[in-house]
């Protein structure tokens, strides 16, 4: 690990605009610092600035940026109204990691592309302009949607996939003031600048995540992975679905580990609404979702896997 200066923030205002890398749970950052993939010259510890409470806000919920993943998943209000979020958090990492990892840190976690994590490999995300070793390399875990010639990495997390389905918002404090953006617009596609995972600007700090009022109906998180626990997703599907009189009246879907961001496709949600559940409908939804999907060799299997996982989730969500 490279040497760095360490300082503690006493309040949010110390952190906003600070010329330092912020650290809270540190479970991803310190891992990458040991690998010298991340080499910050200054760390600012933000674990003592508050922002660690979950509070009601209207019919929704405000989750502080520093609420741990474990505390969020175990929170009675979250479990009751937004069980999808609890389930997705509990699908990720291990209990030890969830006790440290925070809400904002989880959103900002980096890809687990093995070439990104290996300093000897070409990687446009880690070293812009160096190329992408995953293209033509071992790319079993990589993206099938929204890729570019520069990067085929995935966003690896579970929590943000649930937040995308729930249409959460991210509250951000910056040197120029605060802003609030939909979670669905927080992460970026790689395009020609994969070094940027999300839309945070230098000096900005996530302060909370806002959940809208709970949706009546079913909330499902299905995660497909190489082992049953403590593994990243190959494909995951988060679904919020409401049915009235046998007809789908609301559908909010999000997909994990198939793109550089939690993937949402409003066309798929729109297609489902107003229809009666059937295998033919689920096939049509998968066709639409995956019409632009492209395998890279090692991850070709993700296309049929995403299709089947979507069909399984829709069948479960619409079963009587």
């Amino acid at each position: 690990m490279k040497a760095f200066d360490y300082a503690r923030a006493a309040s949010l205002s110390d952190a906003v605009g600070a010329p330092a890398c912020l650290i809270a749970g540190g479970t991803n950052l310190l891992d990458l610092m040991k690998l010298e993939v991340e080499t910050p010259s200054a760390l600012m510890d933000i674990t003592r600035i508050g922002l660690n409470e979950i509070t009601a806000e209207g019919d929704g919920l405000r989750i502080g940026a520093l609420v741990t993943n474990a505390a969020c998943a175990a929170d009675p209000q979250v479990r009751q109204g937004w069980p999808l979020l609890s389930r997705a958090i509990l699908a990720g990492a291990s209990p030890q990691l969830r006790n440290k990892a925070t809400t904002a840190g989880n959103l900002c976690q980096r890809t687990r592309c093995s070439y990104f994590m290996d300093n000897r490999s070409a990687c446009n995300k880690r070293r812009p302009g160096s190329g992408c070793a995953a293209l033509g390399g071992i790319n079993r875990n990589h993206a099938i949607l929204g890729t570019s010639d520069a990067c085929i990495a995935t966003y690896p997390g579970d929590m943000a996939v649930a937040l995308a389905a729930l249409d959460a918002q991210v509250k951000i404090e910056g040197p120029g003031g605060s802003r609030r953006i939909p979670l669905r617009e927080f992460h970026r596609l790689p395009g020609d600048d994969p070094s940027r995972d999300n839309v945070l600007q230098p000096g900005e700090v996530i302060t909370s995540v806002l959940l809208p009022a709970p949706v009546e109906g079913r909330q499902i998180y299905r995660k497909v992975r190489d082992r049953a626990s403590y593994a990243f997703a190959l494909v995951s599907v988060a679904a919020v679905l409401r049915i009235e009189d046998g007809t789908i009246v609301q559908a909010q879907l999000a997909f994990g580990s198939i793109a550089h961001k939690p993937w949402t496709d409003p066309r798929v949600d729109t297609l489902l609404v107003g229809e009666r559940p059937s295998k033919a409908l689920f096939d049509k939804a998968a066709d639409l979702l995956l019409e632009g999907a492209q395998g890279q060799g090692g991850n070709d299997f993700k296309i049929p896997l995403a299709r089947r996982t979507l069909a399984a989730v829709l069948a479960e969500a619409t079963a009587e």
Binding site: Y6, I23, G26, T27, L30, D31, A70, S94, P95, Q96, L97, N99, K100
Partner: peptide, 9 residues
């Protein structure tokens, strides 16, 4: 609370 002591300063 249990944590991984290797991943914290």
């Amino acid at each position: 609370r249990r944590i991984n002591s290797c991943l914290t300063l």
